[in-house]
């Protein structure tokens, strides 16, 4: 977090996340073949692609929830395969994941959910833990009353915010967001985009965002990586991809009627 406003790309700073030659198969079905991807420190990267292209699988491969069949994934300049459990834990604490519906623990209040990583990994005094959790709650824009509620009592948008607060509990350097605006109404989705932007600037986060929401892409993403034909076929700023689509799917996606409406 030494340089929160680091330039997004294009210099010789090593990428914070780098994937080289990734191969992933389910049985005979090849999901990724020789996939390369770089994420620079301090940028918001959007991953787009048609349904079933493996956007979520890629996220799960990077975070170690799925095994891979080949290739190297380096996070913080360290190979994620073959880590000892202590190294793995250290790495887990340096990234946070927001799952699609928040994946909050149903038996705990929002406040307790946010405190789970602190309780598990740190030895904080109780009062400090409560203060930090309430701070995280305010940072993601939830009212203090939400702290005592259970996930089942929250709306979809609030659950996502609470899930984001839990992902931020240990002040990670990278956050992975899986479809953060899906299932939200347009106003709620726009608010969530703003929130991601604001937190990224304030906390100096690197954001890896799986999405298919065109509004999100143009509102928050510094760069977009397009997943098609089992690899990343193109990366660039949203406007660049729109101006010069290099793949039929990109043309369809960025130059369709909805995309034109968003960009104008």
């Amino acid at each position: 977090m030494e340089s929160p406003n680091a330039p997004s790309a294009g210099n010789n700073v090593p990428p914070v996340l780098s994937v080289r030659g990734l191969v992933k198969r389910f049985g005979n079905q090849v999901i990724f073949h020789d996939l390369d991807l770089d994420v620079q420190r301090g940028e918001v990267l959007g991953i787009v692609g048609a349904s079933g292209q493996g956007k979520s699988v890629l996220l799960r491969c990077i975070t170690g929830l799925e095994t891979t069949d080949g290739g190297v994934i380096e996070v913080f300049e360290r190979d994620t395969s073959g880590l000892t459990s202590a190294e793995r834990l250290d790495m887990d604490a340096r990234w946070g994941v927001l799952f699609q519906d928040g994946a909050l623990f149903g038996a705990m209040t929002v406040l307790q959910n946010i405190q789970v990583p602190m309780r598990e990994h740190l030895d904080l005094p109780e009062r400090l833990r409560d203060e930090l959790a309430m701070l995280k709650l305010a940072l993601v824009g939830l009212p203090p009353e939400a702290a005592c509620k259970y996930p089942s009592e929250l709306s979809g948008g609030m659950r996502k915010r609470a899930g984001l607060a839990r992902a931020l509990a240990l002040d990670p350097e990278i956050v992975f967001l899986d479809e953060p605006t899906s299932g939200l109404d347009p106003i709620g989705a726009a608010d969530f985009d703003q929130l991601i932007r604001k937190l990224q600037r304030a906390l100096g986060l690197t954001v890896y965002m799986v999405t298919h929401d065109l509004d999100s892409i143009f509102a928050v993403c510094d760069r977009v990586a397009v997943l098609a034909d089992k690899k990343i076929v193109s990366t660039g700023t949203p406007s660049l991809l729109q101006a010069a689509p290099s793949h039929p799917w990109i043309r369809e996606y960025f130059c369709g009627p909805r995309a034109r409406a968003v960009a104008s």
Binding site: M1, E2, S3, P4, N5, T109, L111, Q112, Q115, E126, R127, R129, D130, E131, A133, M134, L135, L137, A138, L139, P144, A147, C148, K198, R201, A202, L203, G204
Partner: peptide, 25 residues
């Protein structure tokens, strides 16, 4: 430093009220 300043301001703006801090337990 500038990034630290942004962070300090952001945290101050969202600090929980110490008088009615909601406790987890």
């Amino acid at each position: 430093l500038e990034p630290h300043g942004i962070l300090l301001d952001e945290v101050r703006a969202h600090s929980p009220d110490p008088d009615n801090l909601i406790r987890s337990e």
